[in-house]
């Protein structure tokens, strides 16, 4: 059971950041994961008063406040139009509506959880995180960074003519995924993102231009084979490395073929 000594609704990002410098402080997102731990928290920092619970869409980008819930992502028309429904596809099997009404994009991304559908799908796009101290950092870089005590303020997705497809494999519908797979094509460049390997999601670009030109069944298979060879996988009780590598091939090929309409 988690214990919390103090609860503070931060009135500014500066206040939140300062409180968070104590190693035993925690910013609370949806609190779903935090609650399950046995942490003795000194100060629980609530960002709820900072107005970061909206998705702003401009011609160039989406700016998604860290307190936006997964349910908001699921229902946001603009975001799902740009992602071709991939965002909704990524989050809809996460436990249930009540869970997704609490879980936040900030919590999901900052946690950089291995199993994260959210991280996987955002990595398929030209995405960034805005950190209070660290400024704007490409999501692909952020994934590799060690957890620090900065404050994740927003997730930014630049609209760059992207097309996306999302596939995941679950043993039961609302279980953690055995594997997640997002394929993105941003300004003509393809990438595959594989998560729940079970380690955190990793991006692989189509460096060999296997998908150049019109996608065919053969090119989809070749790219899937390439991704399966290059993407490290591991075992846990939801699936072995061999099965995951098998799924990398199957899901990547399906995602590419979905995008290519073949």
């Amino acid at each position: 059971m988690i214990t919390i000594q103090n609860y503070v609704r931060a009135q500014s990002l500066q206040e939140a950041w300062e409180l968070n410098q104590n190693k035993r402080s925690r910013i609370i997102g949806g609190m779903l994961w935090l609650k399950m731990g046995k942490t003795a928290v000194h100060t629980a920092i609530d960002l709820g008063d900072l107005g970061l619970n909206t998705i702003e869409e401009t011609e160039e980008a989406f700016s998604i406040g860290c307190s936006v819930t997964l349910r908001q992502l699921e229902l946001h028309e603009g975001l799902n139009t740009y992602f071709g429904g991939a965002i909704a596809a990524a989050v809809r099997d996460i436990v249930g509506v009540q869970f997704r009404n609490l879980a936040t994009v900030g919590g999901s991304i900052f946690g950089r959880f291995g199993f994260s559908d959210v991280l996987t799908v955002f990595l398929a796009a030209d995405s960034y995180v805005e950190l209070y101290q660290g400024g704007i950092v490409a999501l692909e870089e952020f994934v590799k960074m060690k957890k620090d005590r900065d404050v994740l303020v927003r997730v930014i997705v630049k609209k760059r003519g992207g097309r996306f497809a999302y596939h995941a494999m679950r043993n039961a519908r609302t279980d953690f995924p055995v594997l997640t797979c997002a394929v993105g094509c941003v300004e003509g460049t393809y990438r595959a993102v594989i998560g729940a390997r079970p380690a955190r999601a990793r991006v692989l670009y189509d460096e060999k231009n296997l998908l150049a030109g019109i996608i065919t069944a053969d090119s989809a298979a070749a790219f899937a084979e390439y991704v399966a060879k290059k993407m490290p996988t591991g075992s846990n009780h939801r699936g072995s490395a061999a099965y995951r590598t098998h799924l990398v091939r199957v899901l990547t090929e399906r995602a590419v073929r979905e995008m290519g309409g073949c």
Binding site: G96, A172, R173
Partner: peptide, 11 residues
Amino acid sequence: LMQYKIPTRLD
């Protein structure tokens, strides 16, 4: 119940 999955109504 996070690790031991009983059927939901989608299953």
